[in-house]
Design a binder for these strands. Sequence first.
DNA 1: CTACAAGTTAAAGTGAACTTGAAGTCAAGG
DNA 2: CCTTGACTTCAAGTTCACTTTAACTTGTAG
Lengths: 151, 151
Amino acid sequence: MATLITISEVARRSGVAASALRFYEDKGLIQSERAGSGHRRYPRAVLRLVAFIVFAQRIGLSLEEIGAELAKLPRGRVPEGSDWAKLSATWSRRIDARIAELERLRAGLTGCIGCGCLSMERCKLANPGDRAARMGAGPRYWITGMSRSAT
Amino acid sequence: MATLITISEVARRSGVAASALRFYEDKGLIQSERAGSGHRRYPRAVLRLVAFIVFAQRIGLSLEEIGAELAKLPRGRVPEGSDWAKLSATWSRRIDARIAELERLRAGLTGCIGCGCLSMERCKLANPGDRAARMGAGPRYWITGMSRSAT
DNA sequence: CTACAAGTTAAAGTGAACTTGAAGTCAAGG
DNA sequence: CCTTGACTTCAAGTTCACTTTAACTTGTAG
């Protein structure tokens, strides 16, 4: 098996569409070398990189944020375990915060809505102050006001 | 205080922009009567309705799904506690599922990524089979394949 | 009467994350 | 030589949840 793999191979093994991989490359999230034909050739390590991107998306990071994280990886060297570990250090808090919110919402589900008291004045569950801070046009950044997010 | 309130009043009290309220009305999520001038007049109960919409969005439902939920409310009658309770019955499971996933991701953060083993083959954490089921164009429906979602 | 605020509609724009389509290149097989 | 398949680029399209803009009408205050 070759050290360099094609885009369709990466797509097949990662489950991410080739068009998405090109898109990520445009965004600077991944890089490729080129074969003589101009076709992309990826080093094996790109699979881990793509896995990381998918993982980070599930947690709720936007591609822009992911790009910022990836920029912290060592240049020129294939990243190793400790490099990845550094990147993910702050994420735990983020996950915790989201879990806490969901638990708050679930409590409100049986309490606030269940009893029928749901109203703007009395129930702040769904309205944790972030609606005040709008950010111009576009979608509401999933209301967290911080970044995109996942179910 | 009047029984019918203006759109700006609803916007002020709910924290939802007037343009968003009109948008919700276009989508059939809320309704309004009209003053002689053609201006919208909302019954007070709309505030609870809007609170419900915001709440449901935080949980991760799309407006379309929310519309489907609201369609289950009794027609012609102002919904009461038990009506709301019925709507929110299935949501708890959804919240639980999302919390479970986040906990799985957090575990992977210290385990899979932390140790550097992260790869497509060995680590299925970020790739729970839903990437297989694409749904044509547009954004990836936040990968759950089910619906939009929140951080 | 004139101003002005507050509302109306319809259409177009926004941002994220991609996908799709058009048009072209390149290597291998028959 | 011709076709096929895999790839390329670039531009435009798609979805969602809105916002913004433009042009217009109405009600109230001075």
